[in-house]
Each structure stands twice: as structure tokens, then as C-alpha cells.
Design a protein around this nucleic acid. Structure first.
Lengths: 207, 207
DNA sequence: GTTATAACGGTACAAGCGACTTGTAAAAGC
DNA sequence: GCTTTTACAAGTCGCTTGTACCGTTATAAC
């Protein structure tokens, strides 16, 4: 047999090439040939690592979700001292916004997948997968905040969590459309958090 | 000359066929041939009314936006008596959610266009166009509410208006992905409005 | 050294795409 | 009634797409 190649690593390289195309031209404009060219490989090689286009798309989606998850986890752990629930939430939510090149590409690719997921059962299941966990995590933070007296105790934490997720998605969409600048999106997010937790204190946490 | 045909009406018929396809298979899966078949006409005839695909897409987008605008205007006028700013806002916002078949198709088509608008300057300009006016209208309602003492006077009305728009867009996306049912989306919207205006009073307005 | 096989590069192919051209029928204008 | 113009249907064009299928190389196993 010839040299053993790390298939997973190859697939990740190809996925990154796909992201680069999807974030500039959209998913629908990413043909197998384009992706192969962007990755600097032949079409034949790409086909060696992915049976078909769908398999490639699904792998790339799972991979980018995994990276985004990890990125946000690191943001939380990077918070100084014993961060308040509010600080944790702000770090998460602003990490979901397209603020820098990395996260912008992530959101861009996510938007491209979103459009396809609406009509594709497989992708839709994949897109929905992470929401409940995220929602539960946010709700936990809100409950912790309520216990510490930083949040009105009569707030419906589970619903407020979902509201936060929906809001960030809406804000992200408008940043992609250049309706907001990234800074405005953060400002609006902070406004909502201010309404939720009360007052402006807490907004000085770095983003 | 032969019988005079109402070009505008023909274009609207074709647009409606396009929506039907876009709402089930997505915009990218809507070829000129498919649209023509859905409209029950030949490809040649479709091309007689639209120079190219881009022109068709743009017309259909403007048309559906016009209809949505009109639909929401009617919702406001249908409100009983002298409606409160809160009731007006709720009618608008819930009208933007995909609650019935009509609005669902509208949002579905809007989502398809959104994905394309990210990478298409012309469509992006079209998608952005209505936002400032909507935002100003919402801000006016919020100011009116503040004057009537139904809203805390220190609220940043312009930002709160944008927050409402972003939230509804996020909620709509999650309804399309079957993360929320339409009912849950309305519940979350009402929760936000309750937070904004205070208390639960006002939530009894029909949707 | 032979062989089996993973790892390719290259090409061929049918299908579908948007755009364009041509042909034809019919009705309004003169 | 002849002409002109509109309203179509049908076909063709060049191109791109995803997929399938070669052929070749290189290396690990025996």
C-alpha cells in the first residue's frame, strides 16, 4: 500500500477552502471544481476524500460548528477572575456576532447553510442540533444571575435565553447586509443586556 | 399590433410562480424553465416579459415586498378603535413573522433572497432599502408610547426600534428552521414587548 | 521482486443552465 | 387589405455542473 494519508486532515483542508469560497461567493457558487482549485488540488483528489458534494457540505458544516463552539468556549475561559453570568453571556453572544474576519466567515458560511437548510432536511437537523444546548446554557447563566440578585427573579429564564439567541441571529444577519456595522450590533446587544439585567453596569466588560 | 397585454400583470403572475418554487425548493433551485413550467407558460414567453433572470428576481422581490408592506398596513388599519402604539407595534411585528401560509411564503422567499443579497450588491441595496423607514416608524411609535406614559421615557427609542426588527428577523429564521413553532415565536415576541413596555397588559390584543 | 492497493490526475459524459435566435400567428393601424 | 408590430413557441448555443470512470504512480506487505 502507498503512504497512509490523514483523511480527516485532508477533509478539513478542503472544508476550509470551501468556507473561503462560501464566504465570498456563497454556497451555491461553490462547485467541486472551484473548491478543488481553491484548495490547490485536483478534482479527482477532492473526489477521493468526499463521495459527493453533499458529503462535503455536511462535513464542512460540522467542522465549522465545532470550531465556533471551541472559539466561544475559549472566550469564556479567557474572562478575567470569576466572571459574572452577565459577562459570560456577553462573551458568548458577542462571540456569535460577525465582529472579526474569523467570526465573519463563520457567520457568512452559516448563513449560506441556513438558506439551504430550510429546504434540506439533513442540513436542517444539523443546524438545529446545537440550539437546545446553547439555550440551556444561557438559561443556566440567567438563573445564576437571578440567584446572585443581578437579575429580576421573575424573568422567564428559558424564554429570555431563546430571545437572546434569536436577537443575535437577527443582528448578525443585518451586519452581513451592511445595515449595521459590527460596532452598532454590539451596542444593540449591550442595550438589550442592559434592559435585561438593568442599568449600564457590566457593560465595561471587554468584547 | 396584436392584442395589448398587461405586462405588469403577466410579470406578477410569473413572480408568483417564482415564489411558489422559491418557497419550496429555494431560489437557487428555480431555473427559468422551472418558473415557466410552474407558471404554465413556455420559456420563450417568460423571456418575453423578462430580459434575463436577474431582472425577474429583482421584480419578484420588489413585488413581494410591496405586498408584505400592504398586508401589514391593512393589519394596522384593522385594529379596533384608537389603537395604542404598543398594539400597532405588535400588529406590525407579528405580521412580519411567518404565522400563516401567506406570510410564511413571504418570509421563505425573503430568506432565499437574503442568502443571495449577501453576495449581490444590487439585491443587498434592495433588501436594505426598507429598513430605515421601518425603523423610523417603530421609533415614532415608541416615542408616542413614551409620551403617553406607557413606556419608560429614558428608553433609546431608535435603538429599541432596531432591536425589535432584528429580533423579529431572528425569530422568523428559527420558525423556518422548525426550531420554534409560530406560536412560540409570538410568545417570545410578546415577552420582549412585555419587557419593553412593562407588565403583561396589552398582550390581549389579537394577532 | 512481485503484488496489491491507496492516492491521485485527467477526462469523458449526460444533464441542466441562461441567453439568444428564429419562425409564426394574429391583431391593430393605415 | 396590406403592413407593421406584438406575443408567443421552439430550438440552438456555449457553458457549467456533479458524477463516473479511467490510467498512472508510489509504497507497504509478503
Amino acid at each position: 500500500m502507498p503512504k497512509k494519508v490523514d483523511h480527516e486532515a485532508r477533509r478539513e483542508e478542503i472544508s476550509e477552502a470551501l468556507w473561503r469560497i462560501a464566504s465570498t461567493r456563497g454556497l451555491e457558487g461553490a462547485s467541486l471544481r472551484d473548491v478543488a482549485a481553491e484548495a490547490g488540488i485536483s478534482l479527482g483528489r477532492l473526489q477521493h476524500y468526499f463521495r459527493g458534494k453533499d458529503e462535503m457540505l455536511l462535513f464542512a458544516l460540522r467542522y465549522i460548528n465545532r470550531l465556533a463552539d471551541q472559539r466561544i468556549r475559549e472566550r469564556i475561559e479567557a474572562l478575567p477572575g470569576e466572571p459574572s453570568p452577565r459577562a459570560v453571556l456577553r462573551a458568548c453572544l458577542s462571540g456569535m456576532l460577525p465582529l472579526d474576519d474569523k467570526s465573519r466567515i463563520g457567520v457568512l458560511v452559516g448563513a449560506a447553510y441556513f438558506a439551504r437548510a430550510i429546504h434540506d432536511e439533513g442540513l436542517r437537523a444539523e443546524a438545529k442540533e446545537g440550539i437546545p444546548k446553547l439555550r440551556a446554557f444561557f438559561a443556566d447563566q440567567l438563573r445564576a444571575a437571578a440567584e446572585r440578585g443581578e437579575l429580576a427573579p421573575d424573568r422567564a429564564t428559558d424564554d429570555e435565553a431563546m430571545l437572546l439567541i434569536s436577537l443575535v441571529d437577527g443582528l448578525s444577519a443585518y451586519v452581513l447586509l451592511d445595515v449595521h456595522t459590527p460596532e452598532q450590533a454590539v451596542r444593540l446587544l449591550d442595550l438589550h443586556l442592559g434592559n435585561l439585567f438593568g442599568g449600564g453596569e457590566g457593560a465595561e466588560v471587554a468584547g
